[in-house]
């Protein structure tokens, strides 16, 4: 009797899971496998559904493609610069917000604004800040000019200037979410710990390092992991800043490279795109695994 009951229960369970399984299977697992297969099929043509042969040629091509290497370099630079910086700055701002009383709500709203602002409006602001037009060199150049520095073309100029704008933009865009998560994490730390620390005469810095930081470390690791994944997937921001000819601007990202391979002006190569996509997948998977390993060691639940 109990066995029948158990079977009935598990059947019901599968039935409940069915819609989710169907959707995940059709829109995630199947495409993933398909892409994996494409990546080994040389010269696959999606119109005729034919290919020349099977092998690792697509990977070899992609890995030797200077545009792909440039995209990898750009993406890694973006990740390495923006993830730690944005998390660190967000932490500073959150701690600051948490320790002030007057106007806290106002500041919280101000810091959250970029999250709810339209991308086009944001783009406009960045244009005013950085874009060189016939009439002006942009607001930043105006400031630089006061300090006697020459105008720099941030959008079409040297590589480091463009990278700077991209990083600046990315940090600015991801900041509100991180501040939101961190302020709520800070608010959820039990005040008793701080009172206990005060009775023991703990210095402010030590309280932060030994109590606050460990207490909110799960949230920090969550932000770092999602930050890594988000930055590896960067594409639309880059297009918004530098237009669609990213290879020409030397500002392509891995996702941008995949897109160009599929649909860009030089596109129509699903095999190369698939190989690049699998490579991106491998990179993100590796980094996330490393992150989780580190966080398991140092985060306490």
């Amino acid at each position: 009797m109990s066995r029948k009951k158990f079977r009935d229960g598990s059947l019901k369970g599968w039935l409940y899971l069915l819609p989710a399984l169907l959707f995940l299977g059709a829109f995630m697992v199947y495409p993933l496998i398909d892409v994996f297969i494409y990546s080994f099929e040389e010269g696959y043509n999606s119109a005729s559904q034919t290919y020349f042969g099977i092998g690792s040629y697509n990977y070899a091509y992609v890995l030797h493609d200077p545009y792909f290497l440039q995209a990898v370099k750009n993406t890694f630079l973006l990740v390495i610069i923006t993830v730690p910086l944005s998390t660190g700055i967000a932490l500073l701002i959150s701690v600051g917000l948490n320790s002030i009383k007057p106007l806290r709500n106002l500041f919280q709203t101000v810091y959250f604004l970029p999250y709810v602002t339209n991308t086009l409006a944001v783009g406009l602001v960045f244009m005013i800040l950085f874009k060189k037009t016939a009439y002006s060199d942009g607001f930043i150049n105006l400031i630089l000019h006061w300090f006697g520095q020459g105008p720099i073309d941030f959008i079409d100029g040297p590589y480091w200037a463009k990278m700077f704008v991209l990083c600046f933009y990315t940090i600015w865009v991801v900041m509100p979410f991180k501040i939101l998560i961190l302020t709520s994490a800070l608010a959820s730390v039990n005040q008793e710990y701080y009172r206990a620390a005060r009775v023991d005469g703990t210095s402010g810095f030590r309280i932060f390092m030994r109590i606050t930081l460990p207490m909110i470390s799960p949230m920090i690791f969550y932000l770092i992991i999602t930050g890594f994944i988000g930055a590896f997937k960067a594409y639309s921001d880059v297009v918004a800043l530098f237009g669609t000819d990213l290879n020409g601007a030397q500002m392509n990202t891995i996702v941008g490279y995949i897109y160009d391979m599929l649909y860009g002006d030089s596109g129509g190569y699903p095999s190369y795109a698939s190989a690049a996509a699998i490579l991106l997948f491998a990179i993100v998977l590796t980094i996330t695994c490393i992150n989780l390993l580190i966080s398991k060691k140092s985060v306490n639940d």
Binding site: E192, A196, D200, G201, P214, M215
Partner: peptide, 28 residues
């Protein structure tokens, strides 16, 4: 301030630092 009074305070919910071991808590 509390730290200069020479008091020991035990909180109702103990306020032990959860990420530190017993030894580290006592050493704190």
């Amino acid at each position: 301030p509390p730290e200069n009074r020479g008091i020991g305070l035990v909180f109702q919910n103990y306020a032990l630092y959860p990420h530190l071991t017993v030894k580290q808590n006592i050493l704190f």
